[in-house]
Design a protein around this nucleic acid. Structure first.
Lengths: 220, 220
DNA sequence: CCACCTATTTTGATTAGTCAAAATAAGTGT
DNA sequence: ACACTTATTTTGACTAATCAAAATAGGTGG
């Protein structure tokens, strides 16, 4: 059975490869896992020996089919647990990521399936992140962000791709959660400022980096 | 923060001391944790240095106040999680012990409190084991067992003190779960056999060791 | 009192995961 | 082509938790 550390390495390789087939650099992986680069190299070598990922020295890593299967299962646990914490236990969506980081390694497949049923087989978690189904299939639709979308049009927030508690608390306080509707007033590339208008007329200013974390679709 | 191993050592010292103040022998502790005796000695020495338990060499160990506080919190998590798995997720009570062994180390105090509220602050888990409250207080009523109680009287099962899946499946199939009513027909100390009569008239034979795992109170 | 049995402790090794710091490989610009 | 920068890998050391097996300490029975 995969240890907690192994599950975390595989999960982060999956997240960093955006679901695609690109190589993930050792630096990015080490950064995501908060370990020094040498540690990541050592661990990656071991995981490659186990056949869970493919290591191209000095270039990066990519999941094997087996590794991907495990990573998707961990991600499914993470996101279903987050959904449970918000929907059933009424926890604040800014806190559930940290909780799920622990629980994702302790929840069995049977509990997972029962949670899934209890919640009505949700497709997204509270942040709008897609939940892989039991077969490991995951919606990977590409959305525009508040940093890249057309201005003036009516939009709906579909996803917030940032897990830090501070960011999410800010988003919550500003009404920027999945499902909320708004439009982009103006975007100043020089100052890096994006101005939003909520349906209630309220205006919010946002840095372009933060705006890039918020995915939207045209309302319709 | 206490590691998983530390939490397990403290929890098992608590369980083996029956809530009382008696010393727990190293052999019993090592057995409960499924480690060799030398491992338990080493770990106990470390925990004593941390001030979590008191080690009397060659005699045994006992929890300190700090160790007891942690152990009770772990036990509370274990039993509330079991209750959640049975009540909310409708899992079989014979399986929830193993699940809770994992989850008890991953559930935060905040999630714990919300589970407690969701379940309506239960006093016992599905096996009838008392759940410590948040302050660490735990019902420690002494009950008779099917091996020690008077024969002929009408009884109610209050608790089944054995966690193994096989035993619990047998108990379930025989209608021996907390709340069930029955009486002890006869008890043969020579053969070690206990005969039970259910309310529906059905008879069940049980070894005296198994009978000792089932706690009862006079119905009334 | 001595030999023996049993529980406990010690000692030496092992594994997983980690860090710090030195060594190396791969560009990049001049 | 050469010196530089930067990412990656290697090396050596450490911690937590464990096992196997040898050493030891208490009783217990004769």
């Amino acid at each position: 059975m995969a240890t907690v550390a192994v599950e975390n390495y595989l999960k982060h390789v999956l997240l960093l490869s955006e679901g695609g087939e690109e190589l993930v650099s050792m630096g990015d992986l080490a950064g995501a896992l908060a370990v020094v680069p040498g540690t990541a190299t050592a661990m990656v070598k071991a995981l490659a020996d186990e056949g869970l990922l493919e290591h191209q020295p000095r270039l990066g890593v990519r999941l094997t089919t087996r590794g991907r299967r495990i990573a998707l299962n961990v991600l499914r646990k993470h996101r279903l647990v987050e959904t449970f914490l918000v929907e059933t236990l009424k926890m604040d969506w800014s806190k559930v990521h940290a909780e799920a980081e622990q629980l994702e390694h302790a929840v069995s497949d049977e509990v997972l399936d029962r949670l899934d049923a209890l919640l009505g087989h949700p497709r997204q978690d509270p942040h709008g992140d897609p939940i892989p189904n039991r077969a490991g299939k995951i919606d990977s639709q590409v959305y525009a962000t508040l940093a890249t979308c057309a201005t003036g049009r009516r939009l709906r927030i579909v996803r917030v791709t940032e897990q830090s508690e501070e960011f999410l608390r800010f988003a919550e306080d500003s009404g920027l959660r999945p499902g909320a509707e708004l439009s982009v007033g103006e975007r100043n590339l020089v100052s890096g400022l994006v101005t939003l208008t909520r349906t209630d007329g309220g205006k919010i200013a946002l840095g372009v980096a933060a705006a890039g974390k918020i995915l939207v679709e045209p309302r319709g």
